Computed example of a mutant assay.
Amino acid sequence: MCNLHTVRKSAAEVAAHFGVRNPLASNAPEESYPGTPGLVVREEAGERILQSMTWGFPLRLKGMSPTAKPKPVNNIADLRKPMWAGLARKPQWRCLIPLTGFAEAEGPKGAKTRTWFSVKGQPIFAWAGLWRHSDEWGPVYSGAMTDCNEAIKPVHDRMPVLLMPDEYDDWLRGDFDQALAFQERSFPSDLIEMARTSELWVKRKGTLPSPAGQLL
């Protein structure tokens, strides 16, 4: 389950990588957690657009107070589930989530550290996602997950559906079967770089990236 990702590049660099001619103003931070802003690339009228959206589809759990803040569903376990299939079947609701890295937590409870993953030879890469408009938070996005490969297996049993540049169009414009194929494949282990760090998973009081997200 991915609950932390980064884009440590300028908006201009991200736009250039994804072929975006006119990126929209963005207030996305370098580090994104569930329920916070992140950068997204989507298509409209044949043009790619880069903009900031909230990471996570708002979900009200059973028994929640009507005034309680919804939970952000930031990871997509199965594109065939009813919550996702209607969007996933329509290319206009697919998106690319720009990344320079994503992290998983390792270590004992209360002292977990950040282990970062990136793609070899790709200073910027993409996570396959879906987006929509929400009444609660405006535009929102969530990322598709798949079974881990051997490179990530020591840390977690799941990983984001990662895309190489020559696959961007297939995700954004392909049919539903093509979208499912990306979620069902195994991303090559030899393309993954892992960096274990001493960074605490929770950097400061009130920053809780792990429990905040939801996987559906």
Rank of each mutant, 00 (worst) to 15 (best):
C2Q: 01
C2A: 00
H5Y: 14
H5M: 09
E13Q: 14
A15R: 03
A15P: 09
A16W: 03
A16P: 03
F18P: 03
F18A: 07
V20H: 01
N22T: 15
P23L: 09
L24Q: 14
A25C: 02
S26N: 05
N27R: 14
P29H: 12
E31S: 13
S32V: 06
T36H: 05
G38A: 11
G38R: 02
L39E: 00
L39Y: 00
V41S: 09
A45K: 14
A45F: 13
G46W: 09
E47P: 00
I49R: 09
I49D: 09
L50T: 08
Q51I: 06
T54H: 10
F57I: 05
P58S: 03
L59N: 11
L61N: 02
G63Y: 08
S65V: 04
S65L: 08
P66E: 12
T67Q: 13
K69W: 04
K71N: 12
P72M: 10
K81T: 14
K81Q: 15
M83E: 09
G86Y: 02
K90A: 13
K90S: 14
Q92C: 11
R94Q: 02
I97P: 00
P98I: 05
P98E: 03
G101N: 08
F102E: 02
E106C: 11
G107M: 03
P108N: 12
G110T: 07
K112P: 05
K112F: 08
S118M: 05
S118G: 15
G121S: 06
G129V: 05
L130P: 05
W131T: 00
S134E: 04
D135W: 12
D135Y: 10
E136V: 12
G138N: 01
V140P: 00
V140I: 11
Y141R: 10
Y141H: 15
Y141Q: 14
M145L: 12
C148R: 06
E150L: 08
A151T: 01
I152Q: 06
P154G: 00
P154R: 09
D157K: 13
D157T: 06
L163I: 11
L163Y: 02
D169C: 07
L172H: 00
G174H: 10
D177F: 09
D177V: 13
Q183Y: 10
S186T: 15
S186N: 13
F187G: 04
P188Y: 03
D190S: 12
D190A: 07
R196G: 13
L200F: 15
K203T: 10
K205D: 09
T207R: 14
P209N: 03
P209D: 11
A212F: 02
L215R: 10
